[in-house]
Simulated scan of single mutants.
Amino acid sequence: RAFDADWLREALTGAGIEPVIPPKSNRRFPAEFDRETYKWRHLIENLFGRLKEYRGIAMRCCKTDESFSAFIALAATVIRLR
């Protein structure tokens, strides 16, 4: 909600990006947003936050892209199994 500004919405739309920003509660004319897309966005942001708890992912300790990708898959599996 902190990013709810008309100029930002116009800039995103001009760049071909659909803004999925819920309006602030004190806004006189609330802007429209897709609630279903926002729910998925929230889940993905939470997953990234949990992935960053693993030091190797946050610091990018793996030497190759393949091992980094494997480490992300392993961490996501552990998170999902919790």
Rank of each mutant, 00 (worst) to 15 (best):
I72S: 01
E18N: 15
C61M: 12
A75G: 07
R55E: 15
D34C: 02
T77W: 12
Y54Q: 07
L81C: 09
F29I: 12
A75K: 01
Y38P: 03
L81K: 08
A58W: 05
Y38F: 15
Y54F: 15
Y54H: 06
H42V: 05
D6I: 11
N26S: 13
F3L: 15
G49I: 07
R41A: 13
E18K: 06
K39I: 10
R41E: 07
R35G: 02
I79A: 00
R9P: 00
A73E: 14
S25H: 14
R9C: 04
A11M: 06
E36F: 08
L81Q: 13
W40G: 04
R27G: 03
M59R: 11
E45C: 12
P23V: 03
A11S: 15
R9A: 06
I72D: 00
F29Y: 11
R35D: 05
L47C: 05
L81Y: 10
N46R: 08
L43M: 12
P22T: 05
D6V: 15
W40P: 01
S67F: 05
G56Y: 00
R80K: 11
E32K: 05
E45K: 10
L81G: 05
R82Y: 06
E18A: 13
T77K: 14
I21S: 01
T77Q: 08
R80E: 06
P23T: 04
E45P: 03
F68N: 00
Y54T: 01
D4T: 02
A70C: 06
H42S: 13
T37E: 10
K24H: 09
W40S: 10
I72W: 01
T13F: 07
L81P: 02
I44C: 08
A15C: 13
A75V: 08
R80H: 10
D4E: 14
D4I: 04
P22S: 02
F71T: 03
R27A: 02
D4N: 14
P19M: 03
D65G: 08
F33A: 01
V20A: 04
F29T: 09
A2H: 14
R60S: 11
I72T: 04
F71Q: 03
T64N: 08
L51N: 01
N46C: 07
L47P: 00
R41T: 04
E66T: 11
R82K: 14
A31T: 03
K24M: 06
T77M: 15
R60H: 08
E66W: 09
E10Q: 15
I21C: 05
E36Q: 09
S69D: 12
R9E: 02
V78P: 03
T77G: 08
I21V: 10
Y38W: 13
